[in-house]
């Protein structure tokens, strides 16, 4: 590791935290299921960024391996999500989450 690391770790973590919050707000505010899935993707990628930043601090590959795992997980989640979405669309003709609220807590 050379001393060319110019971004302090806290800044990277702060950026990741901001991205994470944007994703979280997206999940809570959006009504379109595709956009909710995209927001979850943003959250997961924010975690990936945090791992990369942390890994850079320690100069170890752990952070990058975790990022690869996160990528895989995000792909699996979103594939299943899209599959469910197609089923919902086929039966309801809409992807608005409010129309899928027959169950009331």
């Amino acid at each position: 590791m050379t001393e060319a690391v110019m971004v302090p770790m806290e800044h990277g973590l702060a950026l990741a935290a901001i991205l994470f919050s944007i994703g979280l707000i997206g999940v809570m505010v959006r009504r379109n299921i595709i956009l909710i899935l995209m927001s979850i993707e943003v959250m997961l990628n924010a975690c990936g960024l945090a791992f990369i930043v942390a890994g850079a601090r320690w100069g170890a590959a752990d952070g990058q391996i975790m990022f690869m795992i996160i990528l895989t997980i995000a792909a699996a989640e979103v594939s299943v999500g899209l599959g469910l979405l197609l089923q919902v669309h086929r039966r309801l003709r809409t992807i608005d989450i409010d129309s899928a609220s027959r169950l009331q807590g």
């Binding site: 945090a50 791992f51 942390a54």
Partner: peptide, 26 residues
């Protein structure tokens, strides 16, 4: 509907766990 609900909320909570792990790792 149940599956979609569980998927979204579970995805969010996994993200929380991952972010927490990243902070501890940092």
């Amino acid at each position: 509907e149940a599956a979609l609900k569980y998927l979204i909320l579970s995805g969010v909570s996994s993200a929380f766990i991952l972010f927490g792990a990243a902070l501890i790792y940092a």
